[in-house]
């Protein structure tokens, strides 16, 4: 992949596709690492992998963000072995909720949200999507709401941290505007 120049076959993949693929792979890695973090509600995660979703959203738009986050959820859960389990449903619903608010955010007029606003919004949507799915499908008990303040606090903290990370990522990506390869390395090194 990193030496497509000497390949004789015309793969109709652009540099942009490569970058998205790399980012998706990174998202999957974060997803797997995150799966071992403890949580008061098993399967409900703060959504650090959203960092990649937001970066892709800012850089390549909403459709690309959909691909990256869906790939992350599907491949990540297949690799951990939670595909179609409650954990998968929670990841999936978190990703879908994130994508919904990102789509709404993309419809905003003017400058709209920066990285921090987007990440915070996405983190809260992600948590709420997971929480509501857990409530609806698995534990439809009002007592579950007692956990919401803690989970939301975690979401807000992680949302802001993700926002800072995404902001510095964007900074790096912007630096290599004419050649994508260098910035690709930067992303890998993050």
């Amino acid at each position: 992949m990193n030496n497509k120049a000497n390949s004789g076959i015309t793969l109709k993949s652009t540099q942009e596709d490569h970058l998205i693929a790399w980012l998706a792979a990174l998202a999957i890695a974060i997803h797997i690492i995150e799966s071992v973090l403890p949580s008061p509600l098993p399967g409900v995660k703060p959504g650090l992998a959203n960092v990649i979703t937001i970066a892709v959203f800012i850089r390549f738009g909403w459709r690309a963000a959909v691909w990256v986050s869906m790939l992350r959820v599907l491949v990540g859960s297949i690799l951990i072995g939670t595909f179609l389990s409650p954990t998968f449903m929670l990841s999936f619903s978190g990703a879908v909720a994130t994508l919904i608010v990102l789509w709404l955010a993309s419809q905003l007029p003017g400058r709209g949200f920066g990285p921090i606003g987007l990440c915070l919004l996405a983190a809260m949507a992600h948590m709420f999507g997971q929480f509501y799915t857990a409530y609806l499908l698995f534990i439809p008990h009002e007592g579950l709401f007692k956990l919401l303040p803690l989970l939301m606090t975690a979401a807000v903290i992680f949302g802001i941290i993700s926002g800072i990370i995404v902001r510095s990522m964007m900074h790096h990506l912007e630096k290599g505007t004419d050649g994508i390869t260098p910035s690709q390395r930067n992303v890998q090194e993050e």
């Binding site: 709209g112 949200f113 919004l121």
Partner: peptide, 8 residues
Amino acid sequence: TRADYLIV
């Protein structure tokens, strides 16, 4: 941005 402040 202003929207960022609002969401915070």
